[in-house]
Design a binder for these strands. Structure first.
Length: 277
DNA sequence: ACTGGATCCTGATCGC
DNA sequence: TGCGATCAGGATCCAG
C-alpha cells in the first residue's frame, strides 16, 4: 500500500487529530499474532501514561514522538494503516492488531491484513543510527543531498535496471513500485535501462521527476488503488493522475502509444516505449 | 560484490 | 457461478 506520499498522508492525518485532542496513552492492546516481527518487549511499560507530542516521518516509517521519551516506530508494510475511533465507538475490523487507548476516550488502531508491517520502540537519541534508519538514503523531497550529481555517482558501475535502483532505499528513500514507474515516465527514461548507462542529464530529470511526482501525490492525499485511506478516513486522489502504472494496453496520454508492462525484479513495471528511451 | 528470486501473509481479481 | 492460479503499494534473506 504505502509509499512515501501515503505514509506522509497518514502522518498528516494523525497530526490533524492531535490538534483536536491530546493523545495521552492510558493503555494498549496487541493481537496474539506477531506482525512481521514480534511486538517489542516492554511496549506497555514504555508507552503507558506517555503523551504523543507529534508524528514524524522518515522514509516510509512513521515516528510517534513522545517528548524526550521513547519513539514508537511504525512501518506499514504493504497493507498497514492507522485510523481513529471516537470515544465509545467499537467498530473493530478484522486484522486490527494494535490499539492505543487514549485518555480522551479515542483509540488509534493499527490494521494490517498481511502483517508485513511492524512496530518498534527506539530511543530518539539513537534514531539515526538505529537498525531501521542507519542505512537509509536521503529524502527525495526535502534533502539537498539528493541531486543529479548524487544519483549519477550512485548509479555508476551498476548493472541493475534504473527502476530497481531508485526503489533501493539505501540510494533514495520513499520511492516504491507505483512512483518508480511514474517518475521514470515523467523523466522520459526507460525503466529497463541499466543504471550505469543513465546519463548525467537523465539523472537530473529523474531526480526532478521523483520529487515532482511525490509532491504532487502528497498534495492529493496519496494513491488509493484498493484500500488506502488517510488516518482521517479519506481516500487518496492521485490514482487519477497516474500516467502509466496499471495502464497496460491503454493509450499513452502523451503520444497514444500502447502502454507496456513487464516484470523487473519481481515487480510489475509500466512504461511507454515511445516516450521513454 | 551484485542481482534477482523466494519469502513472509491475506484478500481481491483473473481466467478457464 | 466456481475454483484454483495469480497478483498486490515492502523489504529482507539467500543462492548463484
Amino acid at each position: 500500500m504505502p509509499e512515501l506520499p501515503e505514509v506522509e498522508t497518514v502522518k498528516r492525518g494523525l497530526n490533524e487529530l492531535l490538534k483536536k485532542h491530546e493523545a495521552k496513552i492510558i493503555g494498549l492492546k496487541t493481537s496474539k499474532e506477531a506482525l512481521r516481527f514480534p511486538y517489542p518487549k516492554g511496549l506497555k511499560n514504555q508507552l503507558e501514561n506517555k503523551k504523543i507530542t507529534s508524528i514524524d516521518r522518515r522514509a516510509k516509517y512513521l515516528l510517534f514522538m513522545i517528548g524526550d521519551g521513547p519513539t514508537l516506530v511504525s512501518h506499514l508494510g504493504m497493507t498497514g494503516n492507522w485510523r481513529e475511533l471516537q470515544p465509545g465507538e467499537n467498530q473493530f475490523l478484522k486484522h486490527d492488531h494494535f490499539r492505543l487507548l487514549l485518555e480522551s476516550g479515542h483509540q488509534w488502531i493499527y490494521n494490517d491484513s498481511r502483517r508485513f508491517g511492524f512496530l518498534d520502540i527506539v530511543d530518539p537519541v539513537d534514531l539515526k543510527t538505529s537498525k531501521w534508519f542507519h542505512h537509509l538514503g536521503p529524502e527525495p523531497t526535502t534533502s539537498k543531498e539528493f541531486d543529479e550529481n548524487y544519483l549519477f555517482a550512485k548509479t555508476r558501475k551498476k548493472q541493475a535496471p534504473i527502476k530497481n535502483v531508485i526503489m533501493d532505499q539505501t540510494i533514495v528513500v520513499g520511492v516504491g513500485n507505483i512512483y518508480a514507474s511514474e517518475a521514470l515516465f515523467l523523466a522520459g527514461v526507460d525503466p529497463k535501462k541499466l543504471a550505469g548507462k543513465v546519463s548525467k542529464e537523465e539523472c537530473r530529470k529523474i531526480v526532478v521527476s521523483i520529487s515532482k511526482v511525490l509532491k504532487a501525490a502528497i498534495r492529493l492525499g496519496g494513491t488509493t488503488i484498493r484500500d488506502f485511506k488517510s488516518a482521517g478516513g479519506s481516500e487518496g486522489y492521485f490514482a487519477q493522475n497516474l500516467q502509466v502504472y496499471g495502464r497496460k494496453g491503454e493509450s499513452c496520454f502523451q503520444c497514444h502509444t500502447t502502454i507496456q508492462k513487464s516484470v523487473l525484479a519481481g515487480r510489475a513495471t509500466y512504461w511507454c516505449k515511445k516516450c521513454q528511451k
